[in-house]
């Protein structure tokens, strides 16, 4: 069980936002490295370390490997370069390695920080917390209904494919044949989509659904003062880092 379940979902959301902002807008490379360390370390402390690490490394490692491959294979601009690897035409210089590591750290930090929310907070809880802060009913409905519809979709696609194959649809062969097979597969999926939507719209109308109203909840999510203060500090810190970044860029372009 994750420690995040005891918190108001908006607190890890604010913390994740601050870490993402710090990873990209704070002074580099310290900002990215510190954010990555805090995001990953925090995930382990909060009990979601395994999944968050897998998510972050699954993107950061291949991206940095591809960047290093590109920099090793594609000759850079002529000039003084400190090579740390030189095997025939394959040359890797220190700057390229630094850039690849920086991007890996930024990506890792951003994904690990968002992973706190993605892995540690139940989407329904997050939507309820957002609704309590003024998220309108239509947005809450769209989010929750989408989160529920997506897991069914893959299973439904497999069912339609199996059903059409049983009716003799050829899904193999050349690329033209496979493209042709798309319409008989996509047709039933989209028609069922629209007919289900009509039923849902009727159900919503019948229950007096008002898109702009605020959603009530039977079990309110606790929001202690300490968490509210922490969140305010995190939002203001994110805004301050962004403002500093914009000011630095502005001064740089003006001079």
């Amino acid at each position: 069980m994750s420690a995040l379940e005891h918190w108001n979902p908006l607190t890890p959301l604010a913390a994740a936002t601050f870490l993402v902002v710090a990873a990209y807008a704070a002074p580099q490379p310290a900002g990215a490295i510190a954010s990555f360390a805090v995001a990953l370390g925090g995930a382990w402390v909060l009990g979601v370390g395994r999944r968050v690490s897998a998510l972050a490394l699954a993107v950061a490692l291949p991206t940095s490997a591809l960047l290093l491959t590109m920099d090793a294979l594609v000759p850079g601009a002529p000039g003084i370069a400190t090579h740390i690897l030189a095997l025939g035409p394959v040359r890797l210089d220190v700057t390229a390695v630094r850039v690849a590591m920086l991007i890996a750290a930024q990506l890792g930090a951003a994904i690990a920080a968002m992973g706190w929310v993605v892995v540690g907070v139940a989407p329904r809880r997050l939507t309820r917390a957002l609704a309590a802060r003024g998220l309108p009913a239509w947005a809450a409905y769209v989010l929750v209904a989408s989160l529920e519809a997506v897991p069914e979709a893959r299973r439904h696609a497999v069912e339609v494919m199996d059903a059409q194959r049983c009716r003799g649809l050829n899904t193999g062969g050349g690329i033209v044949g496979r493209v042709r097979a798309l319409l008989p597969l996509a047709g039933p999926l989209s028609v069922s989509l629209v007919s289900e939507s009509e039923e849902r719209a009727l159900a919503l109308d019948a229950r007096g659904f008002r898109p702009r109203s605020r959603r009530g909840t039977l079990t309110p999510i606790a929001d202690p003062r300490a968490e509210r203060v922490t969140r305010a500090l995190l939002w203001w810190s994110s805004a301050a880092v962004l403002a500093w970044r914009i000011a630095v860029a502005w001064r740089g372009s003006a001079s």
């Binding site: 519809a149 989509l193 939507s197 719209a201």
Partner: peptide
């Protein structure tokens, strides 16, 4: 103000994005 039918259509369309992405992968389309 989006009509209720359009609002009800959006979650199904999100699911369709995923389902057709899965179909394209299953059919090995580029």
């Amino acid at each position: 103000s989006l009509p209720t039918l359009a609002l009800a259509l959006i979650p199904r369309a999100v699911a369709l994005n995923l389902a057709l992405g899965a179909l394209a992968a299953a059919l090995k389309l580029p």
